[in-house]
Design a protein around this nucleic acid. Sequence first.
DNA 1: ATCCTCCGTGTAATCGATTCCACGAGGAGG
DNA 2: CCTCCTCGTGGAATCGATTACACGGAGGAT
Lengths: 346, 346
Amino acid sequence: MAGIKDVAAEAGLSVATVSRVLNGHPSVSEDARRRVTEAVERLGYRPNAVARSLRTDQTRTLGLVISDVMNPYFTELARSVEEEARALGYSVIIGNADERPDLQDHHVTTLLDRRIDGLLVSPTDGGSPGMLGAARAGTPMVFVDRWIPGVDVPVVRSDGRAAVRDLVAHLHALGHRRLAIIAGPAATTTGRERVDAFREALAAYGLELPDVYIGQGDFQAGSGRRVTEGFLDLAQPPEVVFAADNLMALGALDAVRARGLRVPDDIGLAAFDDIPWFVHTDPPVTAIAQPVRDLGRAAVRALVDRIEGGPGASVTLPARLVVRRSCGETEPGIGNPPSPVRRSTP
Amino acid sequence: MAGIKDVAAEAGLSVATVSRVLNGHPSVSEDARRRVTEAVERLGYRPNAVARSLRTDQTRTLGLVISDVMNPYFTELARSVEEEARALGYSVIIGNADERPDLQDHHVTTLLDRRIDGLLVSPTDGGSPGMLGAARAGTPMVFVDRWIPGVDVPVVRSDGRAAVRDLVAHLHALGHRRLAIIAGPAATTTGRERVDAFREALAAYGLELPDVYIGQGDFQAGSGRRVTEGFLDLAQPPEVVFAADNLMALGALDAVRARGLRVPDDIGLAAFDDIPWFVHTDPPVTAIAQPVRDLGRAAVRALVDRIEGGPGASVTLPARLVVRRSCGETEPGIGNPPSPVRRSTP
DNA sequence: ATCCTCCGTGTAATCGATTCCACGAGGAGG
DNA sequence: CCTCCTCGTGGAATCGATTACACGGAGGAT
């Protein structure tokens, strides 16, 4: 493949001048600029990004380490991150941690070895050693969705408290009193937070959240299924189950169906994280929607700001409740009109 | 950040020796090896992958350019590709083309500039100039899922012909005769191929595939919706609609519901590409499942083989039909037992 | 004892760019 | 006419690794 030297030879100039033309440096004559441009064209020359990165010590690449690509929430997040990064002239390398701290560490290490300019992380667990080390070493970094308390890194996330209050109000209005939750891992902030928000919202209606109504999940479908089975085995099962993420809600739906029971007649279901498919499940699932697209954008902007020496402020965006039919009919006998598929094209 | 020189100084040896230890070169004394290891440990040294790549002219990185990350089929493909690549000591950079040739070109160019070792592509369209150029220039490359006829690159894909025959047999047994298809873009191989397979399978039962029963879609939900509306407006609408991918099936489901009609009573639905959510839609959707995981694995292996100078053989794997309830009950009155959620954890 | 090997190590070239510094030409000002 | 800038350009150092080649010392063969 042709290098800058070949271009210089072809144009009859030095590599220095060629480089200057390539980088839009002002002090180059019009004639030289033209000759270089033509030589580049003739040779089909493309600068070697590896060499450039070595010299300039910047790769114009961002790393994104997420917990689970197969989760539509993170897929959409990844997409919006890439979009915004591209608009700002950066590439993105995605690492899928699959909720495993060791994999998370692997990706963080690999990305750091490649000298990415900044790191976007949604930490799987309390945080792996490599990641904490990177944060301490001063690698530009921003947490997205989840974060680690006590680590001094900006956080871009969505606050579901208000939406959870709306959800509980909705359930209460429907006459439900025994409400249970399938929690995420206690090691994650989102795991703890959603349980807390739920408990607080219940308290506002004088309702308790007994321990037997708190199931321990891991943000994967399988755990939603197991926890729901446990709830159904109780002497007094809950009237509604609130899953802390969409995959666990899928598992819950599964468990209910396996018993030959029906949603919402036999038991209600609600989920955190809305996804297009919830419109088409049987029944459509009531969910709390995060502004994923905006989260991705804000996260990239905060990170790029840090990279360029700025403070990189934290951002918190509100989530909102989307009522469908999985907790019972709001107006008995009249179904909600079907909502259109929400496709995420800008 | 500490470089190899710092390690050499700390260990009291030359950079050459340090490099040899790092790369497991045999001719290094046990003593030197120990001192280097300790120095590396003390300094928390990590080799600079950028510098290494420049010198060795290999990045141990694969590029994967896919048509649409939000499509669960491609998400799963990306995941299995990354998994297999990691096992083989490679990283993967994913580029999302969003079914746009210009974006596809952007990613191919960026990846090539970064000097990735090989490229995995699922071409969006007839193929963009940059991509064809790369193929001609001899960049190790493998097509996955879709391909471009006439371009000499190995193809790893799934053959749905047999499964489509099974589907038509199933529909015929159910008494359906008027069958329609929502096709993908004619510019993609999968788009054309699925229509052809469908037409052939129909012919085997003496059935026609009239032009009005071929709707032109673009693999996105919106097009599935529009095409289905067209079918429903026909004087004689089809009895079953076969969508050439899962997103268009979602759109079809949408359109049917918007009319207040029901699946499968008023119209049947089947889809190419099975996904976990199809178990939970109303009703569960009959679909043709590709061995996505195996495709990803095979694609990576073929590509790595090419990179290492091998021929990189093409691979074709069979797809299979998964019967659910969206085309009518197989045994009237008795529902299928609910299938467990298919999670893709290895 | 001499010579030849082999082994472990170090010196320096190299990969492909960017960029500091020096240099020559030409113009302005005295 | 001399001096001093400015402008466009080129030479060469540099980024952090890998690796060809050279070299000195130890040990075996003769």
